[in-house]
């Protein structure tokens, strides 16, 4: 495992930890899109179907369990925890996320590496992950005051995929390891969707001002 992959995994892990910290200790999920969190739960559930059959390393298995467990517990907290759910911006979080699921599924059935159940589900998870951030970005744009933890969460989530792209380039040259073009395209789309956010995130950081996205 190279440094870029590790850094990518760690930023991904930190993004989840930041979100859990906000929910668990501050008991607030203000500014967080439940729609995006539900999509991530589906992403991990469909991507890690091989978790018990395809053993790579203890590291991989533990990380998969963390991402599965955290994504489903975040959804549970936001929907059912009696204090946390009160802070959910239900009226603002209106992106109809289910309309993303069907096109991703159809695309996965049409364009995949191999037409098997596990491969199609894996490809579906890539397509869905690429666009899963959209409800969160829409909610951010509607939120007047984005708190620090929410801003950091989205930043870390975007940085994770950007670092994975650097990892793929590195692996291409050093290991002769080819990542399928589907993975490349999805990773690029996912990172580009965050690029606009990155711009405003760095601006607010540079000027030491509160993060706010233009309407």
């Amino acid at each position: 495992m190279n440094i870029f992959r590790l850094a990518g995994d760690m930023t991904h892990l930190f993004s989840v930890l930041v979100l859990l910290l906000k929910i668990h200790t501050i008991k607030s999920c203000a500014g967080i899109s439940l729609k995006t969190q539900e999509l991530y739960a589906i992403v991990f559930a469909t991507r890690y179907l091989d978790i018990f059959t395809n053993h790579i390393s203890p590291y991989n298995t533990i990380m998969k369990l963390i991402f599965l467990g955290s994504s489903f517990s975040i959804v549970w907290y936001m929907r059912y925890h009696k204090i946390v759910r009160r802070s959910y911006d239900k009226d603002q979080d209106t992106f109809r996320h289910y309309i993303l699921i069907l096109p991703c599924l159809i695309l996965a059935l049409l364009i995949n590496e191999k037409f098997t159940f596990k491969e199609v589900m894996w490809t579906f998870s890539l397509y869905l992950e690429a666009v899963a951030i959209l409800p969160q970005l829409v909610l951010l744009q509607r939120t007047r005051n984005i708190d620090n933890l929410t801003g950091q969460y989205v930043f870390l989530l975007g940085a994770y995929r950007a670092l994975y792209i650097v990892n793929w380039i590195y692996r291409y040259f050093t290991e002769d390891h080819f990542v399928h073009w589907i993975t490349w395209v999805c990773g690029l789309v996912q990172t580009l969707l965050c690029a606009d956010f990155f711009y405003y995130y760095f601006q607010s950081w540079k000027n030491n001002m509160k993060l706010q996205l233009p309407a």
């Binding site: 992959r5 395809n54 790579i56």
Partner: peptide, 10 residues
């Protein structure tokens, strides 16, 4: 070599 089926990333 392609990662054909072996997904070692997360």
């Amino acid at each position: 070599s392609s990662n054909g089926g072996l997904k070692d990333e997360l």
